[in-house]
Computed example of a mutant assay.
Amino acid sequence: MDFNALLDAVPAQAVYALTGLIILVESIGIPLPGEIMLVTASLLASGPEPRISIHGVAAAAIVGAAVGDSIGYFVGRHFGDRLFGWLGERFPHHVNDETIGYAKHAFHRHGVWAVFFGRFVALLRIFAGPLAGSLRMSYPRFLLANVTGAFAWAGGLAYGVHFLGKVAEKWMHNFSFVGLIVALAFGVFVSTVMRKRISANVAAYAEAKRAAGEEINPTTVA
């Protein structure tokens, strides 16, 4: 299979659109590999003569993140627990009492900062918008944290990976093929490490709640 020809056949606009769409849907609350898609697109924009612009990738990711979180905010504000119940039925591994309870705990502890820094944590990235809405966080405060977080996470990750890709390109003779493999491998590695770390935090939170005889996912967080 000619991987160069395969990648050349994909329009740049399709890469931007797919990157923005996956991140947007993830930000609404649907578990999708937004980080992996962003890393892959950023590395593909790092070739010697790239057809894909890193500025286009970063812009699509930032817009997708900000718009997706805002949609998630209003969905969570109007539907709240029904949304989490629906997600729990379809994605029980990602959405359950333990993960939602831990996310609520993070919001209660860090407030609006959970929205900003949540961009860098897979679990909070999925729940930030819907939870902020369901917990009636002020929308202007949410929007400020949402947009700045989107710029910091999506823009920072896109340009950071792009820079690393440019450095690595000096040692790559067949970038299109090798770059794709590196992008996927790196994305999967980062995602796996973060997922394990968050899973450990969620488990520790749930165990502490059980030991104290408290609800893991309380309706209201005191």
Rank of each mutant, 00 (worst) to 15 (best):
V182K: 05
T40E: 01
S70N: 10
I216R: 01
K196L: 15
P218K: 11
V182Q: 02
S27G: 08
V190K: 07
V57L: 06
E169H: 10
F117C: 08
T148M: 05
A122D: 04
P48E: 12
L24A: 09
E98G: 04
G155M: 02
L21F: 13
Q13E: 15
L143I: 12
A204M: 13
A145N: 04
I22C: 09
A41S: 11
Y102V: 05
V182H: 07
A204I: 04
Y16R: 11
A150P: 11
V15A: 12
L44C: 07
L124Y: 01
G179D: 00
V10C: 10
F84V: 07
V202C: 09
A61F: 03
F74A: 03
Y205L: 07
F175E: 00
I54F: 01
D81P: 05
A183I: 00
Y73T: 00
F3R: 08
L124K: 00
G101F: 01
G85P: 06
L184S: 11
F84K: 04
A59F: 09
Q13C: 14
I30W: 05
A58E: 07
S191K: 08
V121I: 14
A132Y: 03
V112F: 09
H94I: 08
R109T: 14
V193R: 11
P33Q: 13
F3W: 14
G85A: 12
G155F: 03
I54C: 02
A14T: 15
F177M: 09
G160I: 10
H162F: 12
V57G: 00
L18W: 15
P218S: 10
P11F: 09
R51N: 13
E98H: 14
Y139G: 03
A152H: 02
T220N: 10
Y73P: 00
G56H: 05
A66G: 04
K170I: 12
V182D: 08
L131G: 06
M172G: 00
P140N: 05
E215Y: 08
A59M: 12
V147L: 05
V193N: 08
D69T: 04
G20P: 07
A12H: 07
E98L: 06
G56N: 06
P92G: 01
S176T: 07
P48T: 13
V15E: 02
R90Q: 09
Y139H: 09
D69S: 04
G101L: 05
A158F: 09
A45D: 09
R82Q: 11
A208Q: 10
P50H: 03
D8M: 14
G118C: 04
E215G: 12
I62V: 10
A106E: 14
T192M: 14
K170R: 15
G213H: 04
I71K: 08
A158R: 03
K170G: 13
P11W: 12
A208C: 06
I52T: 01
A60E: 01
G165W: 03
Y159P: 02
A185M: 13
L135Q: 15
H55F: 13
L38K: 08
F117P: 07
G187V: 05
V67N: 04
G149N: 00
A5C: 12
A66L: 02
V178K: 10
R141F: 13
T219H: 11
A200P: 01
S138N: 06
A17G: 15
T220R: 14
L21Q: 06
L180V: 08
L131P: 03
A5K: 12
R195N: 14
R210E: 12
F142M: 03
G160M: 10
P130H: 09
I54Y: 00
F116K: 03
V67L: 14
R210L: 13
G76C: 10
F3V: 15
G72H: 01
